[in-house]
Amino acid sequence: MLAKLTHPRIGGLLILSLIIALLPLALPNNYYYDVAIKIGINAIVVVGLNLLIGYAGQISLGHGGFFGLGAYTSGILTAVYGWPPLLALLTGVAVVGVLSFIVARPILRLTGHYLAMATLGLGIIISIVISNEDWLTGGPDGMYVEPFTLLGWELYGEKPWYWVIGALLVISVWMAMNIVDSPAGRALRAVHGSEVAAQVVGVDTTGYKVLLFVVSAVFASVMGSLFAHYSGFITPAQAGFFHSIELVTMVVLGGMASTYGALVGAVLLTVLPQLLSGFEDFEMVIFGLILMLTLIFMPKGLVPTLTHKLKDWRGGRS
């Protein structure tokens, strides 16, 4: 039993749950809840994206597009066509799932940065369409989205949302770890990421990469839908190129191929702009500097570097 608890997978999940459960004690008002919820939403998207970047070795420059597609599918279907939010969310998942599969299948057979380019194109096309079709999407000024309801129960306000997003975060971390630990995932890691070696031992690496891409896109879509209902207001910026870049940055800053790294990356990049808001015109300079310096001195990202240092330190002491 004790051994099970100290197993990094279960132990980590327990600690994460504990933090989520205890954090409200340190949140004095709704604004702090709002930041926490946004951290959670970003974290779930980034945990998904980390699967792709960290384990499939592919970059996506279009996850903002999937997030936006989810958000707008939910927003439009509930507000304009009166669909129930859950059905709209699932429709978004289906659309994004199919779209990402269609794109990924032929492209992931190739090696190189082709997925990055394809997702760049896809993401930008999605954001252009959302921005242009203003009769449906409200155009660049954005659109309002109804609150999330399920069986007559309305999810509204920061505190209920905090618990919903918190629970989803734990579930998605658990899911991500399971996917990573699946036989195919293990095989890929066992051969130290060498695709050729993995293929030689009979692992369908392309299929596995496509799966990771689709899963990460669906994570983004679901969170886009929920974000739309939570925030109540969405703009094409959610689907934009810079949102995509922001998400990739969270993965890399926290540490690639580390699920908890993805979490830390999401926390930092969500909180940082709030902390820097007092610097006014110097905000960009400081933000850029922090990003650069962190990665220059911790090229593996925060969590992997710090855990490594910690291990060294402990090893040296004993």
Binding site: G11, L22, L23, A26, Y32, V267, V271, L275, T307, L310
Partner: peptide, 22 residues
Amino acid sequence: MLKSLFTRGAMLAVCAVSLLSP
């Protein structure tokens, strides 16, 4: 190990909270 990381994270969060308060 993870635990200590997370306590660190929590401390950071508390620091952030106090920084944000006007």
